[in-house]
Design a protein around this nucleic acid. Structure first.
Lengths: 222, 222
DNA sequence: TATTGATAAGAGCCATGGGCTTTCCAGTTC
DNA sequence: GAACTGGAAAGCCCATGGCTCTTATCAATA
């Protein structure tokens, strides 16, 4: 609408808008994702707002909607990003463990309790994701993917380390070890004074040894 | 103030305020607590507002502040209430298990996966509490109490079932079993299609047997 | 039965949140 | 070097949230 728009002269009351730098889309997206992770970790789900995220990222509030559909989409992207970071770090640990299958399995398991996976902020972020699972179907789908992928990977490593284990038993063992890890992880995050990381590693190692050395091949005949 | 107050005749423009019944403070408090639990379970932390809670409880929004300091205090009271319900249900299971120490321990462990403890809504509520742990010190304190109490109880049952287990080992065993339970619980809540409750019970039983039958008393000499 | 005082309802206030729009600026192109 | 393009900053609008405050209602008591 071509109205003449008043056109105030700005002789001295200049709005003084902040200068800014132009960045690539990838850079901004990544900054927003990392800011979201920090926000979830430090302030919880309730404190994770558009303004808080953008303040952490050092950008104005309008940018979030410019790069993402909304705050929900950004949280989902953060979930995916964090999940990939974790699984790639674990995979790296496996690669660095060398050729021995047992070493590789142990490296995979213990990497949950070593940097960069064992990071208080990361744990807190993860709990936030869990709490969104019920109300956000996309979060739930991403969780199913992440969990399923991790369990399958662990299953493969298990069968490589102990080929005599039958498939169904390997599945159960992977589920149990994952549950043990998650439970220890959870409590470490909620109250790190309950036990130490070394103690957690000890429990995990004992669980792995039990699963591997269990040679009783009494097939489940129910 | 004895003003003559206009005294509108209300011939037909009556405000029509809703009728209500008078209830005891305990009744209202309990109704609000149960509404909060339902709200947390169904709508998550983000959807748990004063209005939502009071709608579930069937009362007006003003009543929440009348009976509790605020919504945070109500959530804390709900946490305490849920925690007591769970622990009393587990204690009941132990009592009903009879005198055999091993039966009692197993009853305690398996009660986590039986009603009323195994309730999808309860699991979701619990995750909500976990997600509040970081930002709410009182929630964190309540968690520490609840977790510590459960672990100590499990430790006692463990040592009654297997007196040869030394104290430090019993502590570790209790922590590990609790972690296993929490991890299985968590995943059952997030995605119940991953495994069945019977499978979870099987894993838990195997864990208990391992802990009990482990007679190697090689004391930890690091 | 009239009084009284606590319980409950519901509107309202202020703050915050999310998303949208407008305005502005930095790098590009002709 | 001037117009152009699109990224970026603020401000705006409306909805929601927590909490308060006033008013209405009920039940027990004198």
């Amino acid at each position: 609408m071509g109205g003449e728009k008043m056109m105030d002269h700005k002789v001295e009351g200049r709005p003084e808008r902040a200068r800014f730098v132009r960045e690539s889309a990838d850079f901004r997206r990544q900054a927003l994702i990392e800011a979201t992770a920090r926000c979830l970790a430090e302030k919880g789900v309730g404190g994770t707002s558009v303004r808080a995220i953008c303040a952490y990222a050092g950008v104005s509030a309008g940018l979030l909607t410019h790069y993402f559909e909304g705050v929900d989409a950004l949280i989902l992207a953060t979930y995916r990003d964090v999940g990939e970071k974790v699984s790639s770090a674990m995979e790296r640990a496996v690669t660095e463990a060398g050729p021995d299958p047992r070493d590789r399995l142990w490296a995979y398991l213990r990497s949950n309790f070593q940097p960069p996976v064992l990071d208080p902020n990361l744990l807190a972020t993860w709990i936030s994701f869990w709490s969104l699972n019920k109300t956000n179907p996309e979060i739930a789908a991403t969780h199913a993917e992440t969990y399923g992928g991790g369990r399958e990977r662990m299953e493969v490593l298990l069968r490589e380390a102990a080929p005599q284990i039958p498939r169904p038993a390997a599945r159960i063992a992977a589920i149990a070890l994952t549950a043990l890890i998650d439970g220890l992880w959870l409590e470490l995050c909620l109250d790190s004074s309950t036990f130490t990381i070394d103690e957690a590693l000890g429990m995990l190692e004992e669980g792995m040894n039990y699963v591997l050395q269990k040679p009783r091949s009494e097939t489940v005949d129910q």
